[in-house]
Design a protein around this nucleic acid. Structure first.
Lengths: 231, 231
DNA sequence: TGATCTATGTCGCGT
DNA sequence: ACGCGACGTAGATCA
């Protein structure tokens, strides 16, 4: 990994064109040749970048560029597309290289897949007598997160989101509409389950007769743990 | 901006939990207090991060952490949520600070806006006799990209996407439903125009009587250029 | 490899 | 501040 602090301007041409006027920035060159241009603010997204696979070449500035004070040009070309990044370097304030080795990678916990698994395992939290039919129940327009049956044996489609907003309600509505055309399943009711449900989503769901359930991830994990402890 | 290369482990707790095992990484602290943890590969997205507004405090490692070789702990707390990042630093291989000043920011040359403009200028590519009513036709629930009329004078609402997926079809459906309640406009048919249309989106659109049109950006540009060349 | 879906999405705009 | 749509979305999973 190479770290360069330099006064530079940057041009990107590819899916769109973008230009960064002359200013002091961090240029980060990774081991795979990818380049990130960061300012001293904003978020984790660079001002401009080139993703791997790509190749960086340091070329001579053209005459008019040299005349304008450009001392070096980094030309970064994507390997599989026409995407190109040109960094015109004026002054270099810092330049260092570091060997980092391979990263073991990120371990995540608490994403939608975990919620789905936990709720499927404890489907009775939706109500007494509920039983799981299957997770990822396939329909023509995509998989329903959970299909189960209530105490009376009626089908219930469950859509799970980490954050429940209006899109999720629309999605579940489409599934319900389709599934209710199937005489083997109909009538199918809906449950919209999320750790947090936006007021607008709750209103829309309720208006369509979809029940909203707020999921408590830690509580579900707690049930899981206490049940495991019995064995 | 502070650049630190260090052997460290990282824990994030907030919308989810995530952990990075001990390894050598770049720690980037921006002027606004935000922190990025980068490995020497992958994409422009950091392995872990904390977005502004947030505050970083360097605290003493706990006894068991110190015993495990931790020499310093960065505790980064988001200002408006419970999101927290803890960086346990073992060895520091590099540490430097740089004053970058404020960045003038990125200048973009848009794509979607350009596509809309091109299609509006060549609305006849949708069919003979089509005429433009207006771009960004305002409705109660938002602007329709293009409103035009077909050869028979019937209203046609056009939704333009770079990538046409199911959301775009839903969006256009909402517009059509609303506009068809307006006796001045009704009947309004829909055209879903995109550079690329996903099969599921095409199926849903067709099922709802919405015509799908694949846009060729270069061809539209070509028409544009050849027409310009006439003058 | 292509299609679909999630994301600690982020970003920018309009109300 | 909130909602909504675009993004050079990127990344994972599954057929």
């Amino acid at each position: 990994m190479r770290l360069v602090i330099a006064k530079c301007s940057v041009d990107y041409d590819g899916r769109l064109s973008a230009h960064l006027p002359l200013a002091t920035r961090l240029l980060l060159v990774k081991a795979d040749g990818s380049v990130l241009v960061h300012s001293d603010g904003g978020s984790y997204k660079p001002l401009n970048w080139m993703s791997p696979p790509c190749a960086m070449a340091e070329v001579e500035p053209e005459a008019h560029e040299a005349a304008a004070g450009v001392t070096a040009v980094w030309q970064v070309q994507h390997a599989k597309s026409e995407d190109r990044l040109r960094v015109l370097i004026h002054d270099v304030l810092h330049d260092s290289a570091h060997d980092l080795g391979v990263d073991p990678g990120l371990i995540k916990d608490g994403v939608e897949a975990h919620l789905q698994k936990l709720l499927a395992e404890h489907i009775h939290t939706l109500g007494d007598g509920y039983s799981l039919v299957r997770r990822e129940y396939m329909t023509a327009i995509g998989p329903v997160d959970i299909l189960c049956r209530d105490a009376e044996g009626a089908s219930v489609a469950v859509e799970i989101k980490r954050r429940g907003d209006i899109d999720g309600v629309e999605q579940l509505t489409r599934y319900l509409e389709l599934m209710n055309r199937d005489p083997h399943l109909s009538p199918v009711t809906g449950v919209f389950a999320a750790q947090e449900i936006k007021p607008q989503a709750r209103t829309l769901a309720t208006d369509r007769g979809i029940r909203c359930v707020t999921l408590d991830y830690d509580a579900l994990k707690g049930i899981d743990n206490s049940e495991h402890r019995l064995f």
